[in-house]
Amino acid sequence: MKQVLGDRKTIAVLLAPALVTYSVVMLAPMLWSLGYTLFAGNPVRGFTWSGLDNLTKLFTDPKARQAIAFTIKYALTVTTGQVLVGYLLALLFVFFLKRASGVIRTLTFFPVVLPTVAVSLLFEKLFEIAPTSGPVNSLITALGGQQVNWFGAGSTAFAVIAIMDIWRSMGFYAVLLYAGLVDISEDVIESARLDGAGGWRLARHIVLPMSWPVLISALIFSINGTLKVFDSIYALTAGGPGNQTTR
């Protein structure tokens, strides 16, 4: 193996297929897209040179500003929710359910494998007000409250989107963080317990610092995923009402 990896030509031959594929599939379209920022138009109408107009417009267009603000708000809210709920679930699996966590882990992971559009349709039905009341509005009515038009205002539509995306991906982060938590040695936990640490102190001073690297990885996955989100919001609200959930 040392002989093979010591030869530069062999390394180049082994890496070439992956590098060529990556360049053709990822780098070339990215650079192509970067070039488009300097032009106005599309392939049908044709392109005309516009210089930095598109970039300057981006910072002065109120619609773009609103979309950026919504994206940041969405990313912060959903990332916090996903990682926090995922971490709490992982703690539940490791310290409370232990070996009995298999079924619960499978159930919480299930939404991750569902198609986004199916989840969006499910939440649309759950929160709908017309033509028939969805289960959420029926529950509110049964408890004596007034029905809410969830998709009629930006704030409530945002709440539904956030709940949906946290529910959909909490299983993924729970499993990811679970892998980090099971790596913590039983001996360390046991010694901390013998030293009198328990409950919150054990979590704060032993479990949290030792699971920090995987928590950071989860945070990076989540923030990048939420900043790039498109499909779930488009399928649920199509950017509405108006432009209030456009990103």
Partner: peptide
């Protein structure tokens, strides 16, 4: 159909 402006938004997001 405004590819240029769409690409600018994509660039900002990246």
């Amino acid at each position: 159909g405004n590819y240029g402006y769409g690409s600018s938004i994509a660039l900002l997001l990246s």
